[in-house]
């Protein structure tokens, strides 16, 4: 939005050079210990969230009538304690991770698709179209976004996927600006002009040449959007507008736990730890990717 990022390489077409670009970035990412470790941890958390609920001895909504708000115990199989309804906290946390992560991915994906297409089209068309499209983005920026999200939740409360698709539909603004900036710079380069001269269709140029070459900053931005959406989800949970029983999410679990921080600290600590580690890892990964993909920081 402020500095228009310059394209990172001089690829001639998307393929062979693109691979070496990716390979180069990967190599540099691997040198960044914080980022690789984060990537590893994220993978671990994702696997645990997907597989975990089947492996824990208790079911998601199974009530242990003998253990309400019970502290962690190996003997009972409540490795992270139980919640105030006697349900196994570890199972719920892992399951909540599925919801939190998929919600974040859905929202990010929606913002990615809209933002990249919108930005690429604006940048490629240029001139009056670009001007008009960017004016619209400016207007969207002035919306009291959070208030609209709360209103959306009040209206469509029960359908979470719809809601997060809607959040994604508002989160695309930054993305579109980044992609537009990239595209503006790219389209003056030789390989795009060459494609033009060869009579390649505009849509093909945008999808085959321009968008692949904006991927670097976009990937960085994605790693930053995912934590943003996860936090947003927890914020909505705090307001009582989060996902509904019997489903759960990290945000819901944390906002249940925060009231018990003194009497049943595990209820706050367990889901918070998962959330915090995930967010930290995503942020480190994002920083690492930025460094790896940006030639200026070499």
């Amino acid at each position: 939005m402020t500095t228009e990022p310059t394209p990172t390489t001089l690829p001639f077409d998307g393929n062979s050079a693109g691979e070496s670009l990716a390979g180069d970035a990967w190599r540099r990412l691997k040198q960044n210990r914080a980022a690789t470790f984060s990537l590893f941890l994220l993978g671990l958390i994702a696997i645990a969230c997907v597989a975990g609920p089947w492996l824990t001895p208790w079911g998601l909504n199974e009530v242990d009538w003998n253990a309400f708000t019970a502290p962690p115990s190996i003997a009972d199989g409540h490795y992270a304690g139980t919640d105030a309804n006697g349900r196994d906290l570890l199972t719920r946390t892992l399951y909540g991770g599925q919801i939190s992560l998929s919600v974040a991915l859905v929202a990010t994906l929606v913002s990615l698709v809209i933002g990249v297409l919108y930005g690429a089209i604006a940048g490629y068309m240029g001139g009056r179209v670009d001007n008009l499209m960017m004016r619209f983005v400016d207007i969207m920026y002035s919306l009291p976004f959070m208030f609209l999200v709360i209103l959306l939740m009040v209206v469509f409360g029960r359908n979470i996927l719809l809601i997060y698709a809607a959040i994604g539909a508002v989160e695309w603004l930054d993305m579109s600006r980044i992609v537009r900036g990239q595209t503006l710079a790219l389209k003056r380069r030789e390989f795009v002009e060459a494609a033009h001269a060869l009579g390649v269709k505009s849509t093909t140029i945008v999808t085959r040449h321009l968008i692949p070459n904006t991927l670097g900053p976009v990937i960085v931005y994605v790693t930053l959007t995912v934590p943003k959406v996860i936090l947003l989800e927890s914020f909505l949970s705090f307001l009582g507008l989060g996902v509904q029983e019997p489903m759960t999410s990290w945000g819901v679990l944390i906002s249940e736990g925060k009231d018990m921080m003194q009497s049943a600290p595990w209820m706050l600590l367990v889901p918070s730890a998962f959330l915090a580690i995930t967010l930290l890892c995503l942020n480190f990964l994002g920083d690492g990717l930025r460094d790896a993909l940006d030639p200026k920081t070499r």
């Binding site: 927890s234 705090f238 944390i254 925060k258 959330l275 915090a276 967010l279 930290l280 942020n283």
Partner: peptide, 15 residues
Amino acid sequence: ALAGVAVPNFVIAPL
């Protein structure tokens, strides 16, 4: 600094 983004503020505030 990152610890600040890793914990929701509705946890930090009551804490």
